[in-house]
Amino acid sequence: MKVGYFTVHKSGSMLVYKLLKKVIDLEINYKFYSANNSDQGRFVNIPDGNPANSGELSQLYNEISSGIVGPLRRPLNVKFDHDIVLVLRDPRDCLVSMFHSFTKIHGGIPEEERERRIKKGIDGFCLQRLEDLASRYDIYIDEYLDKPNVTFLKYEDIFLGDSDSWISSFLDPLHLSENIQAAVYDYFKAEVSLDTADGTTHKRRMLPGEHKSALTGEASAEINSRLHNILQRLNYN
């Protein structure tokens, strides 16, 4: 059994990782491949995707015959011969969340780079990152979304929809026992509790729609124009 979990940056990717790690902690039969892992036993580190290594990472991904892989934050040229779960968020909220993460929260960023991004401002930062993010959504929509073995989940449905159905669909491809599924469900419910939101962590802002107040009218119009087809296809208004 092989299951791949795909997403983008700031689309709940750390939640995806934590849920998969919880599964591996409980289910001893699976190997787990992730850029967030340290190499240790069943936890295997693989490179994080970027435009420069997408071909190499695609080959590595396709050579994995069994196990859980993800979260992968960029689309790859994959063989659709196994189950894939695709978790996406309103790309406008992803852009806003990236700004806050890459200026205040995310580790490993030189202070001068943080200051440069802050000086550029949220509008400038989001416009600079827009094409890279939009191109990932374009590929997911064109190449992944309508495949019969791809389960598409929207991040927002955790908070605005049926969260029980969301976590059930997230876990279904893994064929877990009832006991393990129940344990992961309880962990999920604790992780997505709004009481755990913390402005200094990856759970800075959990509810959707922040872009509506964070971006100026001019920047918002340009972003909406580039994302128009994506927003329509994914039913974001």
Rank of each mutant, 00 (worst) to 15 (best):
G70T: 08
P47H: 07
F99V: 00
N29P: 00
V85T: 10
D48V: 02
E113T: 11
H106V: 00
K79V: 03
H9S: 06
R73P: 01
R114F: 11
L26D: 04
K119A: 14
S34L: 10
V44P: 01
Q59W: 10
Q40A: 09
K21W: 08
D138Q: 12
S66K: 03
S11F: 02
F102A: 06
N62L: 02
A35I: 04
K10E: 02
I118S: 04
N29Q: 05
D81N: 12
K104I: 00
P75F: 11
K119Q: 14
R89I: 04
L86H: 08
D81H: 00
D138R: 15
L26W: 03
K79H: 08
R92Y: 14
T7H: 04
P51M: 03
D48E: 14
Y30L: 08
R116M: 13
S38G: 04
K119N: 10
C94V: 07
S58L: 00
L15A: 01
G124N: 09
P51S: 02
S38A: 14
V85H: 14
H106Q: 13
E27L: 07
E111S: 07
G55Q: 00
R129G: 03
L15Y: 05
D90S: 12
V16C: 12
Y137M: 07
G4V: 01
L57A: 02
K79S: 06
D25T: 01
F32R: 04
L57F: 06
S97Y: 08
G41S: 02
H100F: 15
Y17L: 04
P51Q: 03
K22L: 01
I118D: 05
R92L: 15
D123Y: 14
R114C: 14
K22H: 04
L133F: 05
R42S: 09
L26A: 07
G67N: 04
P75M: 13
R129F: 10
V8T: 15
Y61S: 00
S97C: 11
P71I: 09
E111M: 14
L95A: 10
E112N: 11
F102C: 09
E131G: 01
I64G: 01
R136T: 03
I105T: 06
E115N: 10
H100R: 13
S54Y: 06
E56Q: 11
H100Y: 15
G4H: 09
G108Y: 11
C126G: 11
D39I: 13
C126W: 10
E113W: 10
Y30E: 07
S97Q: 13
L15I: 00
Y137E: 05
